[in-house]
Design a protein around this nucleic acid. Structure first.
Length: 341
DNA sequence: AAGACGTGGTT
DNA sequence: TAACCAAGTCT
């Protein structure tokens, strides 16, 4: 691995960041709670997507205590549509733990913050550096892309073992001062200059340090294994409306896919399994294909009118207005939109 | 280590 | 259009 002038690399990067950094909502404040929220939302999610959610979330839960006191249903409702819903549930749980175990102050050591639910190696380093200027490495996809090019590293960044290597390199490159700006500068560079396809090397403040650039291989880095295509699941979805016009909905299990979200009842076996009415009682409403990262729902949506005798503790009969207060996955929001017509 | 875990935007 | 991607974490 090539040797670079670390001090010059740091000052080149920080100087560029000072002039070029984007004006983002979470860069206007240093409240550790707000930094934390932004980092959780930004996991696997684009800045443009996060911004409106971030604003709404902090309007509703302006402080750590406000979030800690909220009901999980409220938290999920604000998160609705953002995806990876366990992030919201874990954040909520972790915030309650900070309130109860740390006097409401987000911990400022690597050991303590890493114990919080949903706070992995990246988020720990990001919050510590950005909120507290603690020189802790925060290695995300941007950082691995930038550093794989700076040092011409051909390790597969999809492998967990690679992250540790980049973490060690990042730690070595971290300045004592301005750790938060440095962390953000590295990610910012990856997000706006050292992008995956057609990186803007001519605009890059650290091009002179870059091995891949010297060798002309920047387009071939980083190396990342392809992922498998998602498997397909056939699903019958039943929209049941009783004689009072209410809809039968159910809350998904507390673990796994879309945990804690609401939905219209599903059956993988076919629509007959949903109700004792048999197949003839159902009227076809629509078909919806919904793609997740690891699976595809092929949904056949049916509708019927039927009075429900008894509800389980995770089921409810709700009007359209009531149902819209609950958090539904995007696939089911499409169904709700149809019912509103 | 590898798969589960969402969604919307790009190419 | 189908594939790929984005400031990862958990099991």
């Amino acid at each position: 691995m090539q040797i670079i002038d670390t001090k010059k690399f740091q000052s080149d990067l920080l100087g560029w960041y000072d002039n070029e950094k984007r004006d983002l909502p979470w860069r206007r404040e240093r409240d550790p709670y707000r930094i934390w929220v932004s980092e959780i939302m930004l996991q696997q999610t684009k800045v443009d997507t996060v911004i409106p959610y971030y604003e709404r979330f902090l309007t509703k839960f302006p402080t750590l205590d406000a979030l800690a006191e909220a009901d999980e249903e409220e938290v999920l409702k604000v998160w609705e549509g953002l995806g990876y819903y366990s992030r919201a549930r874990n954040l909520h749980q972790a915030v309650k733990e900070v309130r109860d175990e740390y006097g409401g102050v987000v911990p400022s050591t690597e050991k303590e913050i890493a114990t919080l639910k949903g706070v992995g190696p990246y988020t720990a380093g990001a919050v510590l550096s950005i909120a507290y200027d603690v020189p802790a490495p925060a290695v995300d996809g941007n950082v691995m892309r930038v550093l794989s090019r700076i040092f011409s590293i051909y390790d597969d960044i999809a492998k967990p073992a690679s992250r540790k290597k980049f973490e060690a390199i990042t730690r070595d490159l971290l300045p004592e001062e301005r750790a938060g700006d440095y962390t953000q500068a590295l990610m910012e560079l990856g997000a706006v200059v050292c992008v995956l396809r057609s990186p803007a090397c001519l605009l890059c403040p650290v091009a002179e340090h870059c091995s891949a650039r010297k060798e002309g291989v920047q387009e071939f880095l980083p190396v990342k294994a392809k992922k498998k295509p998602p498997r397909s699941v056939q699903l019958a979805v039943g929209v049941v409306q009783d004689s009072s016009g209410r809809y039968l909905v159910e809350k998904r299990p507390d673990t796994g896919l879309l945990a804690g979200m609401w939905q219209f009842p599903h059956a993988e076996e076919g629509i007959e399994g949903l109700l004792e009415t048999g197949r003839e009682g159902w009227q076809s409403l629509t078909q919806i294909k919904h793609v997740f990262s690891h699976l595809v729902w092929e949904m056949d949506v049916y509708q019927t009118r039927h009075d429900i005798q008894s509800l389980t503790d995770r089921q409810a009969l709700l009007t359209l207005d009531e149902l819209k207060q609950k958090a539904f996955p995007v696939s089911h929001q499409k169904i709700i939109a149809l019912l509103e017509e």
